[in-house]
């Protein structure tokens, strides 16, 4: 008896340590970014154009660029991903075709982001002739985000109890009426959460935008979807490797802004989830 207790205690200790180790990098990154980044933050930094070869001024165009790209990604990936997920989960039969689609989605999620970047360069920038542009970048990011949205949406749909569907069918509802009437209303919080997490991932990606949209230095705002934009992740890469003598302050503050944007999205997702858990009644 005593031995098993001791084992248990040791096992708990190991698990607690593992959990602690998981938290540590997040805390350390946050601490460093805040510590060095906060002093450089100012209204001017957030709203001004960069000057002196990006060694002074602000990062306004990069913030706008990242926002625009995230919205563009959302426009392309959300309808496509959610509709595909509804089809796969609620309509498609279980046959080799759907299995193939499922395997494709899993593999799509596993493709390295640089490959998406090159794919976007080949398809959107060159072949379709969009050039390096917001359109090409958004589409590339959207393809990368699709598997996340599809998977999250399917999980949310599957979590709606099967009996609710049966009840709806038993009252004479068509499949679409059932999806709209009982499935979607109960799945939407999960869909939103997954979608926001997917988009926040896309907002921070560098490789897919590298060849498809990101501008090295472009101190003005875009005027059409065929314009290039600066974007925060690429801007950070440029500041830290491509431009000599950039003050650490500017680098850290830029990182802080990007991390802050992604965090805000994740917090919104977490908030929606917790709010829904409280409301959920079954």
């Amino acid at each position: 008896m005593r031995d098993s207790r001791r084992y248990e205690r040791v096992a708990f200790g190991v698990m607690a340590a593992a959990t602690g180790i998981i938290i540590a990098p997040v805390l350390i990154i946050l601490f460093i970014v805040l510590w060095y980044g906060v002093p450089g933050l100012s209204l001017e930094f957030l709203t001004a154009m960069p000057r002196d070869g990006m060694r002074a001024g602000g990062i306004f165009p990069a913030i706008v660029g990242t926002l625009v790209l995230t919205i563009g990604t959302a426009i392309f990936s959300i309808p496509l991903g959610i509709l595909a997920a509804i089809y796969l989960n609620e309509y498609a039969g279980k046959n080799w075709m759907t299995r193939l689609v499922e395997i494709s989605i899993i593999n799509l999620a596993g493709i390295p982001s640089i490959v998406y970047g090159l794919f976007g360069l080949g398809l959107f920038v060159t072949f379709l002739g969009f050039g390096a542009s917001i359109l090409a970048g958004s589409l590339t990011l959207a393809i990368m985000t699709l598997p996340v949205i599809i998977t999250a949406t399917r999980e949310a749909l599957s979590s709606v109890p099967q009996q609710f569907r049966e009840v709806s069918f038993s009252l004479g509802a068509s499949r679409w009426q059932t999806v709209r009437g009982v499935v979607l209303p109960n799945a939407i919080p999960g869909i939103l959460t997954g979608t926001i997490l997917g988009l926040s991932r896309a907002a921070g990606e560098t490789a897919p935008i590298l060849f498809t949209v990101a501008a090295f230095y472009l101190p003005r705002l875009p005027e059409s979807v065929f314009d290039q934009v600066m974007a925060l992740p690429y801007h950070i890469y440029v500041l830290s490797t491509q431009v000599p003598n950039v003050s650490m302050k500017i680098q850290y503050s830029t990182v802080l802004v990007l991390v802050g944007m992604v965090f805000i999205m994740n917090i919104i997702a977490a908030y929606i989830r917790s709010k829904f858990r409280k409301r959920k009644t079954w």
Binding site: Q163, F164, E166, V167, S168, F169, S170, L171, G172, A173, Q177, G181, V182, N186, K280, T281, W282
Partner: peptide, 29 residues
């Protein structure tokens, strides 16, 4: 057919709606 031949299941299976909306679900359909 399912409208004409209704069924009551073994377990009570309300939908996650209000009492009113549960009953109104079918007519609205």
């Amino acid at each position: 057919l399912r409208k004409k031949v209704g069924i009551v299941f073994a377990l009570p299976l309300p939908l996650p709606l209000s009492i009113f909306d549960n009953v109104a679900y079918g007519p609205r359909l």
